[in-house]
Design a protein around this nucleic acid. Sequence first.
DNA 1: ATGAAAGCGCTAACAC
DNA 2: GTGTTAGCGCTTTCAT
Lengths: 358, 358
Amino acid sequence: MRAKEQALNIHEVARRARVSTATVSRAINRVPTVNPKLSQRVWKVIKELGYYPNTQARALVSGRSRIFGLIVSELTNPFFPEIVQVFETIAVRHHYEILLTSTMNDPEQMESSVRRMIERQVEGVAVMTFGMEEALLEDLKLRQVPLVFVDVGPRRPRVSNLRIDYLAGIRQAVQHVAALRHEKIAFITGPHTLKSAMARKQAFLKAMHEIGREPDMNLIVEGNHTMEGGQIACGHLLALTKKPTAILCSNDMTAIGVMRKCYEDGISIPRDLSVVGFDDIRLAQFMLPPLTTVQMSQAELARLAFDALLAEVEREEPLPEGSEYVLKTALIERESTAICREGAVLKTNHPAPIRTVG
Amino acid sequence: MRAKEQALNIHEVARRARVSTATVSRAINRVPTVNPKLSQRVWKVIKELGYYPNTQARALVSGRSRIFGLIVSELTNPFFPEIVQVFETIAVRHHYEILLTSTMNDPEQMESSVRRMIERQVEGVAVMTFGMEEALLEDLKLRQVPLVFVDVGPRRPRVSNLRIDYLAGIRQAVQHVAALRHEKIAFITGPHTLKSAMARKQAFLKAMHEIGREPDMNLIVEGNHTMEGGQIACGHLLALTKKPTAILCSNDMTAIGVMRKCYEDGISIPRDLSVVGFDDIRLAQFMLPPLTTVQMSQAELARLAFDALLAEVEREEPLPEGSEYVLKTALIERESTAICREGAVLKTNHPAPIRTVG
DNA sequence: ATGAAAGCGCTAACAC
DNA sequence: GTGTTAGCGCTTTCAT
């Protein structure tokens, strides 16, 4: 089917530069032993013709595709775009391409993702779906493809894990609202099936204990990491006779749901209620008021994931236990938290955030 | 370097199924003439071994990479994630992979993008950067790679254009606020260098004329499609003695800037001021109040772009003038617009949106 | 330092 | 209907 007119391949370049294809290949790959005169001649032709080597052919012969797979659950989840962006940027810098797939948490699509990755011979896969069927990764394991997981990965050779230090940031959040004299602090969890969500809840409990507060179990309600879940959970909380004055959320979308519920009910944030999110998605800073939240740096996450993959690709002998990396979290104080008014000594002005001491 | 243990390739499958590689290939590609008995035997081995064909090799011999390039300016711009998501979903359905690159509007990165696409032998490229250096596309033109642009493309063979019908949606927006009895209607433009931004401004002017309103040039100020730009532009508008009661924005981020400025200044939306955005990014519905905006369906845009590319790939003879597709826009009424209070007969309740008649 | 040639994994003639 | 074989475009021995 392909037009025969003039194939723009290494042979054509070789012919025009009056050298062998081997020399062209060497010139392109900057093999130092090649005669500068010839190399120049080759490059001149390359420029003239606008020739670019065919990656498929290179990959086929070298056995290296220079592709990393990146599996996310859905790109429209505001948590992911920055991860993808940063991952891609770093990949390009290392002459890698990324094969991005979103699974929508659908087992069928996950399987299709893995299959496509294997077919394209990826050299490594970063799994960002926060929970994935063990079985689906059999094929990847079998092929010794380096893998990196967030939170949920097994300890195995060629598998890296990014452990997230939830406690650090959540502790800061708890201490922050406590310092603002809030007594009734609520927590809206994520889905109980999600490991990372449960880890956040545990971190909250631990942080409360640390400052000698026994968390009120009525103030811990389940959400589902969506805005709607946050709205509903917030509704439950506000219906309590012992209403909370501060609500910490398992993720930012939940917090946004809380903010919406309050908006609808005419409750002013942060005057009447303080809200803290988790993740620090881009959206958080666009909210009104800007959302105080625990940051889990998406850029840092992407960077760690890429580095883990690259290290594994370049490692000759796999480590028997794989590798572990830790990602810190930290509170970002914006304007959705303020000093508690119930029995407060001083009153706060609406939009100005109160900063904790120390 | 590759371990020699046991190559998992077509030969291995052929050996185990006691057939030739040609038969394996035919079985995989479901060539109808192949003996069902043999085919079954082949598939059995394939399943047992967990074999997947090597795409690079297939691409090399068939001359078809089954990759489409997708160039965006930056993925963290909330306009893009849904486009990418939908584009990818459709691509997968057609057994294509996408090569995603973000250029950050940096000429160097654009060049790198194009080079990488050519190296990977993409069969088509969708350019979503809203403006791209002509020169950079020379190489793609040269290779006859089908291209699709949004708004800015040339009329050339193998080049498709998605023209956006800005007027339809903006006309609705103008009529909407006019029906809400707003007299002083402002417009915050995008950067003057951006074709699409200028088209939106022209559409606004036209829509105003259509209803017999001479737009007040003092109420047309320049923004830059960012939140900060919107804040500043809004500041200028509010400093006017003849303040507007409704502000239309060239995109949603600008509108979000307007909302923030109002939040800071204690101006209530929509009670004191109506705001309309453009694009309908996901964020728009999360704002408080949810933003009334002109929708340019990102899903539809992605679908049109993919279809255009696919049509071109499958077309034997290129059309001399390329193809054109039109994407409609339409107003989505949410809660950031309400009836004008200045001299209003009836007062509106805060969160409830007012719907226009007809 | 350079060229000839083998071969990466697959498909598509072409023969049988 | 199935097998044999010649490449696809490139890298990489192995001679020279």
